[in-house]
Every structure is written in structure tokens, then in C-alpha cells.
Amino acid sequence: MTHNLVLRVVSKTLIPLIIMFALYVQFHGDFGPGGGFQAGVIMSAAIILYTLVFGLDAAERVMPPMALRILASLGVLLYGGVGVATLVMGGNYLNYTVLASTQIAGQHLGILLVELGVGITVFAVMLIIFFAFAGRGRR
């Protein structure tokens, strides 16, 4: 598919929009429908589109497999780390109230960080899975 001009041009304009939409879904999840799970999947869909149009080698230069493995672990660590932080600051595990001076601010900060962790992990794992399948076809 690397020589299909229409696909290349259209996907080049679409991919930034998809990524922006994913970020919107990620950070607007508190107020409208959305959150880390959806944002991660949409973000990985952008890279999957890139892979389908420009090939696996180009996509692996954009998203090196090693970086994806680190990102996947980083998301889980961020989530667990917020829990440990609340423990250290004197609350229960994953009780975000202690993170900031007021309850509302603490909960906001906690939910934001936790959703970010979810988003990063889902994004990285979906791409790891897709690259594993795509790489299998390459001899």
C-alpha cells in the first residue's frame, strides 16, 4: 500500500486529528464521556493507521518496540505509584484526598494521574499486540 497516493495524503491529515482527539478524550474524561481506556485505544488506532499505510518498519521507527515495553510498564507503575504516594502521605491506598490540600483538588489530581496511567498502558499494550501480529507475517 506504500504507493497509494490518496491513502498517504488522507492518512497524513487524519493522524494528527486522531491523536488530538485521543488527548481530548483523555483529559476531558472527567466532564464528558471518555477516559484513559478509550483514549489509549484511539491513540493506538492512529499508530495502527500509520502502520497500515506506511509499513511496519516506518512505524517501528516512530514507536520503537523497546519504548512501547517501557511505556506499558510505566503506566502500571504510575497507577501503583499514586497508590504508594497516598500511603506515604498518610491516607489509605488509592485514597486521593490526601494528595492536595482540599478533598476536591486531591481527588481531581488523583483521578487525572490514574487515568493517565491507564491511558499509557492501554496505548502501549494495544500497539505491542498489533506489532507482534504484524511482525509475525514478516519473515
Partner: peptide, 10 residues
Amino acid sequence: ILTAIVVGVA
């Protein structure tokens, strides 16, 4: 169900 869908695809 939200979490179940994503776990389901995994």
C-alpha cells in the same frame, strides 16, 4: 463493562 471491554480485547 467499560473495563471488561478493554480486558476482553486483550
